[in-house]
C-alpha cells in the first residue's frame, strides 16, 4: 500500500510492501554488554551463506582483522579499547566491609588490645600492631592491573584502567531502507518478515544501493560485481530456523525474534543495567521515530554510537525524494510558463 509514510515516518514495512497477512516483523537485538568478541557470528554467517574468504590481513585494530561490514563479511565484530574502567567499577579496596581503620595509629592501638576471639589455641587472637598500622595506611598498589592501575595512584603517567568494547555489527534492516528505494532492478526487496534482502539472481551490480545506505553496510564483491549483505538468513527464518549468527552466539549477545518483543526485552535490559550502575548503557536504532523509522536490527551500546563507528543520527537518504520531485516539477512548470510568456511578448 502506498502511504504517506512510505518513505519516512513510523511504518509497518511488510504491510507497506504488499504483504497484508504478514507475520510478525523479525529482527536482531544485539546486546553488546554481553558480547565477548569470539566472532562465532562472523564465522557461522560465512559458513551458512557460503561467503568467499576475505584474505589474510593483520589490521592492528585490536583483535579486529575484519575491519568493516563488506560484501564478504556480513557480521563484523568491532573491538574498541578505551582508557576507562568498566561501568562504575572502582578500586576493589574501597567500601569493603573489612576495610582499614581510619588511621594507622588507631589501627595499631586497636590491634594492641588483643581481644581474645577464642577460636583456636595457639593462634594469635589479633593481628600485630605493626601489621595493622600498615594495613590502615591504605592500599599500596601491588602492581596488578586488575587491582589498581598506576594512573590512579599517580605512580605512572596518567594511565587508567582499560575497557574493551566489543560489538557485532550487521545490516540494520531499516524500516525505511534507502537501498531498497533506489534499487532500479527490484533486486533489493522487502520480505514478509519486514527484512531487506538482495536477490542475487536479479542484482546487476549497478551499485546505487551502496551510497544510499546511511550506515555504509552494502558493498560490491570484487570479481563478481554484485552487491551483497546480510539477508537476516531469509532462507532459514522462512522455515522457522534461527539465523546462523544468532544460533551460534554463545552469550546470547545476538538475539533473534519478533521485533516488538525484542524492543521490550531491550528496554528491560537497559533498565537493569542502569539499576546496576552501568549508566552509559543505551539503545541504538530501537526508536520507530528516528531517521530511518527504527532498525530491524538494533543494538544496546555502552558508549556513544560514534565510538563503535555508527552514525549518531542516521536518516534515510530518500527522505526528501518527494519534496525534491515536487520542487523539480514546480521548477519545470515555471520554466515552461516563462518560455511561453517570452513568446507572448514577442507577438505584435
Amino acid at each position: 500500500m502506498v502511504g504517506t509514510n512510505s518513505l519516512y515516518g513510523p511504518l509497518d514495512p511488510a504491510r507497506d510492501a504488499g504483504y497484508p497477512d504478514a507475520p510478525a516483523r523479525m529482527g536482531f537485538f544485539t546486546d553488546t554488554s554481553v558480547c565477548i568478541g569470539c566472532k562465532a557470528c562472523e564465522v557461522a554467517c560465512k559458513e551458512w551463506n557460503q561467503v568467499p574468504g576475505t584474505g589474510l590481513d593483520l589490521l592492528g585494530m585490536s583483535f579486529d582483522n575484519t575491519g568493516a561490514l563488506t560484501a564478504n563479511s556480513w557480521r563484523h565484530v568491532a573491538f574498541v579499547e578505551q582508557p576507562r574502567p568498566i561501568g562504575q567499577q572502582s578500586s576493589p579496596f574501597v567500601d569493603t566491609p573489612t576495610g582499614p581503620s581510619v588511621s594507622a595509629a588507631a589501627a595499631a592501638i586497636g590491634a594492641g588490645t588483643k581481644v581474645d576471639t577464642g577460636t583456636k589455641p595457639g593462634v594469635p587472637p589479633a593481628i600485630e600492631p605493626d601489621s595493622a598500622a600498615w594495613m590502615a595506611a591504605g592500599p599500596e598498589f601491588p602492581g596488578m592491573p586488575g587491582s589498581q592501575p598506576p594512573g590512579r595512584t599517580g605512580s605512572a603517567n596518567g594511565r587508567t584502567d582499560v575497557r574493551w568494547l566489543m560489538m557485532s555489527d550487521v545490516c540494520k534492516h531499516c524500516t525505511h531502507a534507502a537501498c531498497l528505494d533506489v534499487c532500479p532492478t527490484g533486486s533489493l526487496f522487502r520480505t514478509e518478515f519486514g527484512t531487506v534482502v538482495i536477490q542475487e539472481d536479479i542484482c546487476n551490480g549497478c551499485g546505487y544501493c551502496i551510497p544510499a545506505c546511511p550506515y555504509g553496510v552494502i558493498d560490491q564483491r570484487e570479481g563478481d560485481g554484485r552487491a551483497w549483505k546480510c539477508t537476516l538468513c531469509y532462507d532459514r527464518i522462512g522455515v522457522g530456523k534461527t539465523p546462523a549468527c544468532a544460533q551460534a552466539c554463545p552469550t546470547e549477545s545476538i538475539q533473534y525474534g519478533a521485533l516488538d518483543e525484542l524492543r521490550e526485552r531491550a528496554q528491560r535490559r537497559v533498565e537493569r543495567l542502569h539499576a546496576g550502575g552501568v549508566v552509559e548503557a543505551r539503545l541504538y536504532g530501537d526508536d520507530p521515530n528516528d531517521g530511518v523509522g527504527g532498525d530491524g536490527a538494533f543494538f544496546l551500546l555502552l558508549d556513544e554510537p560514534e565510538v563503535y563507528g555508527l552514525p549518531p543520527d542516521p536518516v534515510v537518504t530518500t527522505r526528501d525524494l518527494p519534496k525534491m520531485w515536487r520542487r523539480a516539477g514546480l521548477a519545470a512548470v515555471t520554466m515552461a510558463a516563462a518560455v511561453l510568456a517570452a513568446f507572448i511578448r514577442r507577438s505584435p
Partner: peptide, 14 residues
Amino acid sequence: DPLGRGAAAKSGRS
C-alpha cells in the same frame, strides 16, 4: 504492492 518494493519484486528464486 504498487510500489514494487516487496511482494511484487520477489524473484522466482526467492
